[in-house]
Design a protein around this nucleic acid. Structure first.
Length: 873
RNA sequence: GCCGGAGUGGCGGAAUCGGCAGACGCACAGGUUUCAAAAACCUGCGCCCGUAAGGGCGUGAGGGUUCAAGUCCCUCCUCCGGCACCA
């Protein structure tokens, strides 16, 4: 590092250190068994949700989470951990392919370009990744193992072919998984989707539903994210029971209910229009009405069925079922069977017993079609009118125990009166089981994972289809590579473009018979469901990851990313990890110990009087106001997401060019709590840059030259005691704040220290500056390393041991306490730290003597070291 | 509708366990330096009354608990995220 510049110039120091870190492999992490591995150190695995390398390059949202994990990774390294901090690319998938089609270039090529751009942009931000562990999910040496893992799933009966209706998106030309379809539209692109039956590969994630639910609980994830997964898995406990159908011997309708205790109030049954028994039970007189309703329901798109759900609709089948509470011929048990599209065929049994007195949907339906609403609860409230309505079945109420008097069978074998909700449910289930009418049943909302796509840019399945059925490609034949194709556009029919690669599709199997390759490819989430494992052992050619590597590194200690992957990626990753664990390939059962969701970085936008968004380039500042540049009224500033349309997108490259990477990192961490969404304010960026400038000048004075490098620094012997105290407090604060992911307040603490040091104008010692550089460097590594070197720190700062603090220096010898009278602050008093209550009280009385004058103190509250409060009369 | 999170100066935010609300940064104002400007540095900066000393008010709204509430409890409003006819 030859030329020593005087002023803080990130443009020269940052690229130099980045190059050095890369050239010297500074952040390479050895694995257990490697020559330079130190088994005495504890491990730490800090992982980012790896990016989807899009053609538009890095967004300011990316470095937010990446900086957070980098701070922790660098901190842990200085604290003596073996740190695994890798980066890679989620490279297969729809957007890459769409971009390739749009630019008429092969996706392999566009993806490689995007990766190169991303890598370069990330390296300009000084992240301490072990680049030797870089992986790409589209790399054959990677997806070979994705295919291999899929074979493990298949071998365990967890991958199967299905012809059930699936979400098909015409515009995207592929089927989509449940989590990729929102309100009947594709998550990506917002295109309409429809249900249609297609042969697809499906993964039996439902087999793991219970474990995915219970094993979620101990994880260190946010409550909201756990709640999202819980709701997605959607466990309901209740019962299945059978209602025999009048006039159809041996035919019964099985329903699922979470409230078997409300059987006393079941006044009709509802089947979904698609239910198989509809055709069986419908009477001749009702057949026409039923069939036209079925047709109407079928022609409604999923969108219409959910969006137009306001008004209930349905048709009576003409049939009656029998409520099992009553003897077989008792007319009181006779209830009509209806069909209605508010009952979903894919959930439960596709049929319900309707209890209008206890379920608002059933109540609404009963009202609309004038069906009976037998009251079953005896509510107790101050509102007599409401109670009366509920008792008479004129109002629906949920969860309202106690049960009404008539909630008992005539022979007394089931009597709910006086029971709690839980006891009522289990009594009802016991009763049903004893008579063979039903049994306890657990139902999940979670569906099996639709695992194939009709697109080119994804992992091929290691599957051949022969006349005798499915045959898997042998392990030693993996990976199955994609064929080179000029035209890889989707075909417009629900069939993969791979069907056109005729030479690729037609193969001979092991025994020399004619076979066809599977033409579907795997979904984007395939490669990302296990990449955290590959990072542990990225170049292994014999296994997806050695046991020794995964045993050592897994689970991930800190995983940072956005909430958008709450039910997709994070659920799939947990599923695959559990399967690999069950198959004996992994010790861990859960991949991610601690998950932290970063907020979104938003931006300012401007609205005119009509509420229309005005692009930022069309605005100008006039005094304190922002107005339309082309003449026009005052604009209102709002906070919204960054968007090309609003012209408010911040490009990280521009920020690095103007202020440097350290400033970008520091600003993104200083904006506010990592988990919060917060707006980018260009005016705030110079603030953190100024702070770095002050740090620089404290180390490198204006009159700096090689000869007087340390002349301005105090020798360590005559260190300023006050500053030393401030430094110890700063170290303690930064440590604690990194531990709780509160990077904004850690930076504020460092600013306070630098302000103190600046005020004392050069009273810092070299040792103090070196220690300060150490705590700064996880946040701003380039300036940290540069100053460390210039100050003559030994070795690389990146691996220098984190400075210690002396707990005795964290507290002053003399403290100022607050003195209150009747809870209002009236004065302050200085006392020795640790002074007894009598000393505090004496000092406090003195401080507020005027306010106590003529009053009687009835109570004295003393909070040692902080506060005294006098309660007076 | 249900679940989760939030609401604090002109702005972003701080207050980690019920104990001095507004740390730190931005913006703004005044000053030092300068031929000048930039940069840098210093000072001030919640609102109201007051020259000041001082006083009153103040953390979305209303109520409550407490010597003491941004923090705990109840009711409500607004915003953000998720789920949504799942029986």
């Amino acid at each position: 590092m030859s030329e020593l510049k005087q002023t803080y110039d990130p443009a020269t120091i940052e690229p130099r250190w980045q190059q050095f870190w890369l050239d010297q492999n500074v952040f390479h992490t050895p694995n257990p068994g490697d020559a330079d591995f130190d088994a005495r150190k504890p491990k730490f695995y800090a992982l980012d949700m790896f990016p989807y390398p899009s053609a538009s390059g890095l967004h300011v949202g990316h470095p937010e989470g990446y900086t957070a994990t980098d701070i922790v990774a660098r901190y842990k390294r200085q604290k003596g951990h073996n740190v695994l901090h890798p980066m890679g690319w989620d490279a297969f998938g729809l957007p890459a392919e769409q971009h390739a089609i749009a630019t008429n270039t092969h996706p392999a090529k566009t993806t490689a370009q995007s990766i190169a751009t991303f890598r370069e942009q990330l390296q300009r931000l000084g992240f301490s990744y072990d680049w030797e562990r870089e992986i790409s999910t589209a790399d054959p040496s990677y997806f070979r193992w994705t295919q291999w893992i899929w074979k493990q799933l298949h071998a365990r009966g967890l991958a199967y072919e299905s012809n059930a209706p699936v979400w098909w998106c015409e515009v995207l030309g592929t089927v989509l998984a449940n989590d990729e379809v929102i309100d009947g539209k594709s998550e990506r692109g917002d295109h309409p989707c429809e249900r249609r039956p297609l042969r697809q590969w499906v993964l039996r994630i439902t087999e793991y539903a219970e474990r995915l639910l219970t094993e979620l609980e101990p994880l260190d994830w946010s409550d909201s994210l756990k709640a999202m997964q819980r709701e997605w898995i959607g466990k309901s406990e209740g019962a299945e029971l059978d209602f025999s159908v009048h006039g159809h011997d041996g035919v019964s309708v099985r329903v699922f209910t979470t409230r078997p205790d409300t059987l006393f109030g079941a006044s009709f049954l509802v089947l979904s229009p698609e239910h198989a028994l509809v055709a069986v039970v419908t009477s001749a007189a009702q057949r026409q009405a039923v069939e036209s309703y079925q047709q109407a329901a079928a022609s409604k798109s999923e969108l219409e069925r959910t969006e137009l759900a306001k008004e209930k609709s349905g048709v009576w089948t003409g049939a009656y079922a029998h409520n099992p509470l009553y003897p077989g011929d008792d007319p009181r048990g006779r209830i009509p069977i209806w069909i209605a599209d508010y009952v979903i065929v894919t959930y439960g049994t596709g049929a319900i017993m309707a209890v209008p007195a206890g379920d608002e949907r059933d109540f609404e339906f009963a009202r609309k079609f004038d069906l009976a609403v037998p009251g079953i609860f005896a509510p107790k409230s101050s509102d007599a009118e409401r109670d009366g309505k509920i008792a008479r079945g004129e109002l629906c109420c949920i969860d309202e125990v106690p049960y009404a008097l008539h909630c008992r069978t005539e022979d007394g074998s089931l009597a709910l009166m006086g029971l709690s909700l839980a006891a009522g449910k289990s009594a009802a289930i016991d009763w049903l089981v004893a008579r063979g009418f039903g049994q306890a049943k657990v139902t999940f909302k979670l569906r099996d994972w639709l695992f194939s796509r009709q697109r080119y840019w994804g992992e091929p399945f290691p599957v051949l289809h022969t006349e005798e059925g499915v045959e898997l490609v042998a392990d030693d034949q993996l990976p199955v590579l994609l064929p080179q194709m000029e035209d890889f556009k989707p075909g417009g029919v629900p069939e993969s473009p791979l069907v056109r690669a005729k030479n690729w599709v037609a193969v001979k199997d092991r025994k020399g018979r004619n076979a066809k390759r599977e033409i579907n490819t795997m979904p984007g989430a395939a490669g990302s469901s296990w990449y955290f494992l590959r990072f542990c052992d990225p170049t292994n050619e014999r296994e997806f990851c050695s046991r020794s590597a995964s045993d050592y590194w897994m689970p991930v200690d800190l995983y940072v990313g956005g909430t958008e992957h709450a039910v997709g990626h994070l659920l799939y990753s947990r599923f695959w990890t559990k399967v690999l664990h069950d198959a004996g390939f992994l010790r861990v059962n859960e991949p991610i110990q601690k998950l932290y969701n970063q907020g979104m970085i938003q931006s300012f936008a401007y609205q005119d009087a009509r509420g229309a968004i005005v692009p930022v380039k069309d605005t100008k500042e006039v005094g304190d106001d922002v107005v339309h540049a082309m003449g026009g009224g005052k604009l209102v500033r709002i906070i919204t997401k960054m968007s090309k349309r609003y012209g408010n997108v911040i490009n990280p490259d521009d920020v690095v060019r103007e202020y440097g990477a350290d400033t970008l990192r520091l600003y993104e961490m200083y904006m506010g709590p990592l988990a919060d969404s917060k707006p980018w304010n260009p005016k705030d960026v110079p603030g953190v840059h100024r702070f770095l400038g002050r740090v620089w000048r404290l180390c490198v004075p204006d009159d700096f030259s090689a000869g007087n490098l340390h002349a301005h620094l105090r020798s360590d012997r005559t260190e300023d005691a006050e500053l030393e105290k401030h430094l110890h407090r700063c170290i303690a604060k930064v440590e604690g704040d990194i531990d709780r992911m509160a990077f904004n307040t850690a930076i504020a603490a460092m600013m306070i220290f630098i302000n103190e040091a600046t005020k004392r104008n050069g009273a810092l010692s070299r040792s103090q500056l070196l220690r300060f550089c150490q705590i700064l460097s996880p946040f701003a590594p380039h300036i940290g390393e540069e100053l460390w070197q210039r100050l003559g720190g030994s070795g690389l700062l990146a691996y220098a041991t984190w400075p210690t603090f002396d707990a005795a220096l964290l507290h002053d010898l003399e403290v100022e306490i607050a003195v209150q009278v009747l809870g209002k602050l009236r004065g302050h008093a200085k006392v020795a730290a640790g002074a007894g209550n009598d000393v505090l009280l004496a000092a406090a009385r003195l401080a507020v003597a005027a306010q106590l004058e003529g009053k009687t103190v009835v109570k004295e509250i003393v909070v040692p070291g902080k506060l005294v409060n006098f309660v007076v009369k």
